[in-house]
Design a protein around this nucleic acid. Structure first.
Length: 557
RNA sequence: CGGGGCGUGGCGCAGUCCGGCAGCGCGCAUCGUUCGGGACGAUGAGGUCCCCGGUUCAAAUCCGGGCGCCCCGACCA
């Protein structure tokens, strides 16, 4: 059935029902693949003239893609279309907040399970700290308060009462219930956590303290974007305490590597690791490490951060320990986190104009079986076989699903699973029962092939591994293609305008960093870690002053 | 906070200039025919036209005021 793309009123005042040919033909030229037909919705008689409305329809064969805007046409709209059509998230009544729908949350759960296991393997335990932070806590660390003060939500009252103002009506905060000290809804938990760590840590025997929490946080951002930047988001924040500087620094790097492994091996999203410059550093950190990924539109996305906090929070919350010589020392700290933003990164790394594309390791459903039948007898046979295959796959540890809805037709299901990013789809019909085959379609490739039912679990395990690797390789190739090395500022500006990563020499001063950002909107994404990229000395492209090595620039989300 | 756009059944929109029965497509429900890449027919349900006030015999439409959302920028994970 055709989908209406648009309807346009003809105001030419031509006579007759469908006689507005001038308007119709000129509009038709605009979008040749679009079919149209004039449809008179209203023809109000007006001194002999008639008005009509022209409805535009998409040709039925084109409707498969009509739900998702093409990336080349409008990347931003494409992203929103994918999120909506794949039913990952929806807007909420509160500006900047989102509802994470079951399909999106299942993805997050996959990420959580994987990361949580990695955290446990590196010796961390989970705990939970409160949502509310006394305002005064935030004020303890000078840089921290400066960094977050402008984006916190405040709780000032504990009760509502009926408004006495007749005009206003409704409920108002009860003045009697005003809090003695306002509470901040946590934008991050360093302060509440270090307040407790000060109690819990007395001796070097209590160290290291390795704790993680899964939580929601709130940052009142000016402009939001589903998953990438929302007012409230879900994340994980690790907070560790160490006896030595080296211990904390090691932890910072260790967790950065955990993030890198997760991004590359599970999300199939290649990343570069490095250190942030002072201007991009976490408020209150000594060093902020990060992994950066490149999205398909050439913009960078910070995918995870790990901070070496030095003794800043220990000093702010007076957290000391007695060392082996019974001398009192401040504790060394780290914190590290990734958030639901990763889902946005995942979408923008792999998905295409047909919708979501998910790497098999994180896909809630890895394989979907679509039964095909023409009558009741066939249905029984096909369903029997499909059930058996489903069991075989499940037993082999593959997350498989049988789409047994008899309310939708196969073609409809194909399109839906494609839109929702299921990595592998199997078609099973009467023909396959005869031949002992199934029809296999990979989400990352066009076309389909017939494979034997015999040994299907093994075949699929290979296919899924191949899809996983293929997505990573493809993403990496895309990144390499859009990474440039430049020496002078003209070439730099040109490269940034084209989008992508740009390696360039920087003289290390905040002035040039600010000027570059001002003029090109590019920021320094990272100073590479040793071994991450070739480091050869050179001259800052603006000042000509010495540079130890190129740093990575890009426009970022 | 600046710039732009938009508020009309679940979704996408027409209707607003020029006031006169609130419409179209999708979706949804029921029945039938269908089913290897988004099927078709028939019937049907579904609306405070963002809110408040004004003008008028009559307001989705005109006038005044308010609210909300989306997109683009500055700020940020």
């Amino acid at each position: 059935m055709p989908t209406v793309l648009a309807s346009v009123s003809c105001r030419s005042g031509a006579k007759g029902n469908t006689k507005c040919r001038h308007t119709i033909s000129s509009l038709a030229k605009i979008a040749p693949p679009v079919r149209f037909r004039p449809h008179v919705l209203r023809s109000a008689s007006n001194e002999g003239h008639r008005r009509c409305t022209v409805l535009f329809f998409l040709h039925p064969l084109l409707t498969m893609a009509d739900a998702v805007t093409a990336r080349a046409d409008d990347y931003s709209q494409w992203y929103l279309d994918v999120v909506r059509e794949a039913e990952l998230a929806d807007y909420s009544p509160v500006r900047g907040c989102m509802t994470i729908r079951p399909r999106g949350y299942a993805l997050w759960e996959r990420m959580q399970d994987t990361l949580d296991e990695m955290f446990k393997e590196t010796g961390h335990e989970n705990a939970y700290f409160p949502l509310f932070v006394p305002q005064s806590f935030l004020e303890r660390e000078a840089e921290h308060v400066e960094g977050f003060a402008k984006e916190v939500a405040l709780v000032t009252h504990s009760r509502l009462i009926e408004s006495e103002d007749e005009d206003e009506g409704g409920l108002v905060p009860d003045p009697e219930s005003e809090l003695g000290e306002p509470l901040v809804v946590r934008p991050t938990s360093e302060t509440v956590i270090w307040n407790k760590y000060a109690d819990w840590i007395q001796s070097y025997r209590d160290l290291p303290l390795l704790i993680n929490q899964w939580a929601n946080v709130v940052r009142w951002e000016m402009r939001t974007r589903l998953f990438l930047r929302t007012t409230e988001f879900l994340w994980q924040e690790g907070h560790t305490a160490h006896a030595t500087r080296e211990g904390a620094e090691e932890e910072t790097r260790r967790m950065l590597e955990v993030y890198r492994t997760f991004a590359e091996e599970y999300m199939a999203m290649p990343v570069l690791a490095g250190v942030k410059t002072a201007s991009e550093r976490f408020p209150g950190a000594v060093d902020t490490y990060c992994i950066e990924a490149l999205m398909q539109d050439g913009k960078a996305l910070q995918a995870g951060t790990s901070h070496f906090l030095g003794q800043n929070f220990a000093k702010a919350f007076d957290c000391t320990f007695a060392n082996q010589d019974n001398e009192e020392e401040y504790v060394w700290a780290t914190s590290w986190g990734v958030s639901t933003r990763l889902i946005g990164g995942l979408i923008m790394t792999h998905s295409d104009d047909q919708g979501l594309v998910l790497p098999p390791k994180l896909a809630p459903t890895q394989v979907v079986i679509v039964p095909i039948y023409f009558d009741d007898d066939q249905q029984a046979d096909v369903m029997d076989r499909a059930d058996a295959l489903l069991e075989e796959l499940s037993d082999a540890g593959i997350r498989a699903k049988l789409d047994d809805r008899d309310t939708q037709r196969p073609g409809w299901k194909f399109a839906e699973h494609e839109l929702q990013g299921v990595p592998v789809r199997l078609g099973l019909g009467p023909r396959d029962l005869e031949n002992g085959t199934v029809e296999l379609a990979r989400r990352d490739q066009d076309g389909k092939e017939n494979v034997a039912q015999e040994g299907l679990a093994d075949t699929l395990a290979d296919t899924l591994a191949d899809v996983q690797q293929g997505l990573f390789d493809q993403a990496k190739a895309r990144r390499e293609e859009r990474t440039r090395v430049v020496d002078d500022y003209d070439a730099f500006q040109e490269a940034i305008a084209e989008g992508g990563f740009v390696w360039a020499h920087w003289d290390g001063t905040e002035e040039t960093e600010a000027r570059i950002q001002d003029e090109t909107k590019a920021t320094i994404r990272l100073v590479p870690l040793p071994g991450e990229a070739e480091r050869e000395p050179g001259e800052g492209m603006l000042s000509g002053k010495p540079s130890e090595g190129r740093v990575l620039f890009a426009q970022a989300y």
